[in-house]
């Protein structure tokens, strides 16, 4: 019965995709009505103007272009034109660096905050104010103070992805069941051992949820940051193609950003299943 549900879901998914692609194709077909213009003039004009071609590319255009990109993902034509594979690698590298710094800071700090109700109350207003700030708002400040654009991008990822982890870790640590801590206390377990053998495993699922939210945010932020800073990365690719008003390439980049984001999320979902325990 479960298998058949899956099957049915897959069929519905495919039908939805087909309907979407079909509608897209129909909506972006060229009207075919060539405007009345001299051939000399038409030669100087783009397809949208001469053949009534929609400014939005159809699914076939996108497919063809995607194939072109997939065939050679790692070409390097100089500092401003690299293959999609290289651009994604640059973005992933930046995200990982910023994210790992955030993990290294948020988890120990969250632990301390969670164990001390006083600190948790005292720091709460700061965290609440800093949490909702958009990455683009940090960017000028980072560029101005750090004076290095690639470090600024990493800083922005760090600052945006640190908060969910911090809050979740603190929350997870604070809400470990009192009985377990009391048991540890009766058994005269030391502070350090209590933190690692009782609190950490109990709080792990919440911490991982925070990490999962954070990786999503980090991946969101990288595109915005790279569009601004430029140079390399998938965000730069989007900006560069937008510059050329090449919507086809922008759509391809959107697809890839979604795919990579999904993969990152799934990896953390797997890990969080590993540390979850039945009660």
């Amino acid at each position: 019965m479960i298998a058949s549900l899956r099957l049915r879901a897959a069929v519905v998914s495919i039908v939805l995709l087909a309907v979407f692609l079909g509608a897209w194709h129909l909506a972006t077909r060229s009207t075919g009505t060539a405007a009345n213009m001299s051939p000399e003039y038409a030669k100087l004009m783009g397809m949208t103007a001469t053949q009534g071609k929609s400014a939005m590319p159809g699914p076939l255009d996108v497919g063809a272009k995607l194939w072109e990109h997939l065939r050679r993902p790692f070409y390097d034509n100089g500092p401003n034109d690299k293959g999609l594979g290289i651009q994604l690698a640059f973005s992933l590298g930046r995200v990982m660096l910023g994210y790992l710094i955030a993990v290294a800071i948020a988890i120990p700090l969250g632990f301390l905050i969670g164990m001390s109700p006083l600190m948790s109350k005292a720091l709460d207003p700061f965290i609440q104010i800093l949490k909702p700030i958009s990455p683009l708002a940090w960017m000028p400040l980072a560029l101005y103070t750090i004076k290095d654009s690639s470090l600024s991008a990493i800083f922005v990822i760090f600052i945006c992805s640190v908060w969910p982890m911090l809050i979740n870790t603190a929350f997870g640590v604070a809400s470990v069941r009192k009985e377990w801590i009391n048991v540890a206390r009766t058994l005269e377990v030391g502070n350090f051992r209590r933190a690692f053998t009782v609190i950490l495993p109990a709080a792990a699922p919440t911490i991982l949820t925070g990490m999962r939210i954070s990786i999503g945010i980090a991946w969101l932020v990288i595109v915005a940051a790279e569009m601004l800073v430029g140079g390399t990365g998938i965000g730069y690719f989007v900006w560069n193609e937008w510059n050329n008003l090449s919507i086809t390439n922008v759509i391809i980049a959107i697809l890839l950003i979604g795919l990579v984001g999904m993969v990152l999320d799934q990896i953390l979902a797997r890990v969080s299943r590993l540390v979850t325990f039945p009660e």
Binding site: P79, N80, L143, Y144, M227, L228, G230, G231, W239
Partner: peptide, 11 residues
């Protein structure tokens, strides 16, 4: 190096 905007090129 291609740059995204005038403020960025300035900075």
């Amino acid at each position: 190096v291609k740059t995204a905007g005038w403020a960025v090129i300035r900075d």
